[in-house]
Simulated assay, not measured.
Amino acid sequence: MFKRLFGQPAATPAKSLAMVRNITVGRTVALDPLAWRRLGADTHFTLDRDALVITAQGVVALDGGTFVHRFYTDDHVMLQAMSDDEAGAASYDFSLFTPWSSAYPPGERERRLWRDRLSEPRFQGAPEGLPEYPRFWFSDSEERQPPVTLWETIYDDREAAVPYARIFQTCMLYARDLAGGRELMIALEQEPKGGDVSHEIMIGIPLEMAEFSA
């Protein structure tokens, strides 16, 4: 079900899955729709339900002992949390993302142009039907910055015998302030082991702890 985004399974043994505020594969997350309705008509974030059935989850190990935990539905809605531990007990900085666009670059030229777009201080989203987004990472600089690279390991089984996939990602996070709050946007290149390279855009919102539960 995740082959379009994640490619074929890897064969590396896995640790037991993290659980962030009771969220893991097989659980349902209840959302407060006010989290995005408060942004009003100006937002590009849309979601047609207030419950997410989690069918896969990913983990990213960052430098300094910080982890990114991601929880996915079958239609690629993503709930994300930061944590100071791999088990997800010390979690914070929650956000919710929905897919906006997906494309497969035909060659290296298109991949280079995409990485160039991700290096600019502002993302020009007109080709994808989006407004301009200021960079959130490296927001204190107007200089070009290389996008962030990371590996995400994906699991679709709570027992976590083996990961479903390993994906190399080149990405940048953006944010724009609206009258009702902040809208996020992440643009990335995904390069799964055994799969095709794709360029993805996801629109997101920050989540308060009281706005979701499992």
Rank of each mutant, 00 (worst) to 15 (best):
A41G: 12
T43Y: 01
T43L: 01
T43A: 08
H44I: 02
F45Q: 03
F45P: 00
F45T: 00
L47F: 05
L47I: 06
L47D: 04
L47N: 01
D48P: 05
R49S: 14
R49H: 13
A51I: 11
A51F: 10
A51P: 03
A51C: 10
A51M: 10
L52R: 01
V53R: 13
V53P: 07
I54E: 02
I54G: 02
I54N: 02
T55R: 08
T55L: 04
T55P: 04
A56T: 05
A56D: 05
Q57L: 05
Q57K: 03
G58Q: 04
V59L: 08
V59R: 08
V60I: 13
V60G: 00
V60W: 00
V60Y: 00
V60K: 00
V60T: 08
V60F: 01
A61D: 06
L62A: 11
D63S: 12
G64L: 04
G65T: 05
G65W: 07
F67E: 00
V68E: 12
V68Q: 11
V68L: 14
R70L: 10
F71A: 02
F71M: 12
Y72C: 08
Y72V: 02
Y72M: 14
Y72P: 05
T73G: 06
T73F: 09
T73R: 08
D75P: 06
V77W: 03
V77D: 04
M78D: 07
M78F: 09
L79G: 01
Q80V: 15
Q80C: 11
A81W: 09
A81T: 12
A81M: 13
A81D: 13
M82D: 09
D85I: 05
D85L: 02
D85M: 10
A87W: 07
A87V: 13
A87S: 15
G88T: 00
A89W: 09
A89R: 15
A90C: 10
A90D: 13
A90Q: 15
A90K: 15
S91P: 03
S91H: 05
Y92A: 10
D93Q: 10
S95P: 01
L96T: 07
L96C: 10
L96N: 06
F97L: 14
F97N: 05
T98N: 12
T98L: 09
W100L: 06
S102N: 14
A103F: 11
A103Q: 14
Y104P: 03
Y104G: 08
Y104C: 09
P105M: 09
P105D: 10
P106C: 03
P106D: 08
P106E: 03
G107S: 10
G107A: 12
E108R: 09
E108G: 07
E108W: 05
R109H: 10
R109G: 05
R109I: 11
R109L: 13
R109T: 14
E110Q: 15
E110I: 01
E110C: 06
E110M: 11
R112M: 08
R112H: 06
L113Y: 03
L113K: 09
W114I: 03
W114M: 12
W114C: 08
W114S: 04
R115W: 02
R115P: 00
D116M: 11
R117K: 11
R117H: 04
L118F: 01
L118Y: 01
L118H: 01
L118I: 04
L118K: 00
E120S: 10
E120N: 08
P121G: 07
P121R: 06
R122D: 10
R122G: 04
F123K: 02
Q124P: 04
Q124R: 14
G125N: 03
